[in-house]
């Protein structure tokens, strides 16, 4: 049944892939590589970011006065502590963030980042679709 939870590949593989995507995502944020950050984002989330910031995604994730510092702050301490994979969706908890991902094709992409928990409601995320 554990295999069903994660799809064809073993659950360990799916979890480590999701973890790797978050590690890459925050490594790109720390390196201020906006394009690499946006390549790892759900296209709808990148579009929403562009609309809110009024700038291309690659610029917004680094320079937007709200999103840029929110991501940079979390990138400073992005040690992964928990990974949950359920089917095509995943949640990776780091020391400073809760990141949501979705399986698209053969890779995990970030659907929401810089998230804050709210009781009984969805997380409030600086980056989301």
């Amino acid at each position: 049944m554990a295999t069903l939870a994660a799809g064809c590949a073993g659950p360990g593989v799916m979890e480590s892939d999701a973890e790797a995507s978050v590690t890459d995502f925050y490594a790109a944020v720390a390196a201020r590589d906006g394009q690499a950050v946006c390549d790892l984002l759900l296209p709808d989330a990148a579009d929403a970011l562009e609309q809110d910031a009024g700038a291309p995604c690659a610029t917004a994730v680094v320079e937007d006065p709200q999103v840029g510092p929110a991501l940079a702050h979390r990138a400073a301490d992005a040690t992964v502590s928990e990974v949950h994979v359920s089917g095509t969706q995943a949640q990776v908890v780091t020391t400073s963030d809760t990141v949501f991902l979705a399986r698209s094709g053969d890779r995990w992409i970030v659907t929401a980042a810089a998230c804050t928990a709210r009781p009984e409601r969805p997380y409030d995320c600086e980056v989301e679709a």
Binding site: A5, S86, Q89, F100, A112, A117, Y123
Partner: peptide, 17 residues
């Protein structure tokens, strides 16, 4: 399987599994 499918929907809606 229901727990996994429900968690998948929770995560899709940015909620905890």
């Amino acid at each position: 399987t229901g727990a996994v499918a429900y968690s998948e929907e929770q995560l899709r809606n940015l909620q905890d599994p």
